[in-house]
Design a protein around this nucleic acid. Sequence first.
DNA 1: ATAAGAAAACTAATGACTTTTGATTTTATA
DNA 2: TATAAAATCAAAAGTCATTAGTTTTCTTAT
Lengths: 193, 193
Amino acid sequence: MAKQRVTRTLVVEAAARHVNTYGFAALTLAPIAAKLGIKIPSLYNHVDGLDALQAALAGYGAQALFLRCQDAAIGRGGADALLAIAEAYRSFIILNPGIYAATLHPQSQPNPELVQANRSLMELLERILIPFELSGADRTHVLRGFRSIVHGFATLEESGAFGLPIDMNVSFQTIMTAYITSINKPRRAVSLL
Amino acid sequence: MAKQRVTRTLVVEAAARHVNTYGFAALTLAPIAAKLGIKIPSLYNHVDGLDALQAALAGYGAQALFLRCQDAAIGRGGADALLAIAEAYRSFIILNPGIYAATLHPQSQPNPELVQANRSLMELLERILIPFELSGADRTHVLRGFRSIVHGFATLEESGAFGLPIDMNVSFQTIMTAYITSINKPRRAVSLL
DNA sequence: ATAAGAAAACTAATGACTTTTGATTTTATA
DNA sequence: TATAAAATCAAAAGTCATTAGTTTTCTTAT
């Protein structure tokens, strides 16, 4: 059985696995090529250098994050949906710390795929917030708070900054619930019966 | 007038300025030596290599962060103190993003100075939380939430992730106030009159 | 089936940065 | 003036991304 030839997707996926294990700072061409069983220059057949690989990884990661959050919101609304998205968001960061870091890394070139994925995520959250009937500025504040808590908790958790042997899931659930409760109550769903 | 000779403190301070401008990832020996007007090997007279410099910077940063938070809490208590500490914490991160990153960077060697500074900060926060009369586990949850919000908001803000032209200070104040309000009310200070 | 063309992989090499060492010289201090 | 500290030169040993030119390999069309 002949070995599968390398493709651009395989390169990005190999990079994704690598940064999740060794951190985003460890993203260099050598380990990616080795993982794929090819030499470094061959990577240039699929990706236009290291910067382009970082950019591709960022877009790939942001899209994956959005899709998981979107999936978590299916069949839920209001506070339920917010909590489910928060949990999906956090678990993505914990399971993919390197990819998530790539997502946040400043881009040397405009990155439409990354921008689009981030926009999609924001639109998803704004849609969930509709029943809360917030004013424009309040919506922004609430959104920033939501991202801050999820991002902050998950990155601190992942870095090992939370030393104590107290359950992380309980902490996150408690904090998130307290925050969501502080948002004005949504009107209940309209019954069609 | 003869040039001041380099000392260990000057090295750490030069490194601090450098990472705040160019990011923690850009911490290498070359720019530090150049900034001090000496050659790279001369740095080894003051610091035992790059790892040791990173470690010194982390300790220096964590201590500075603790001192600013401690200072912010003087003359305040309860929710007031929490809000003031949060603002001091956030402004430290915004003004010193590189140093703060050094603080969070995993240490290759045990770093007693860093551990001590972090412990001091935790003890300060726990002391502020006393009047809230929280149980042991609840105290941990509240503390984790506090750090998550401040760290998350400030790092996202600093990375430019908050695009909209809505005032950051208002957002932070709003979020923090909502969170602090969600903690059980502290009993008011006992009057000695 | 085979020849042509394209895509992928390779070898070789360059140039720029890294950190770190050892031995030596300069400089300040006691 | 003697001693210790600081700064220096020189060099090693490594990693890094990237380019150019060449060979292999697959695919496609005749």
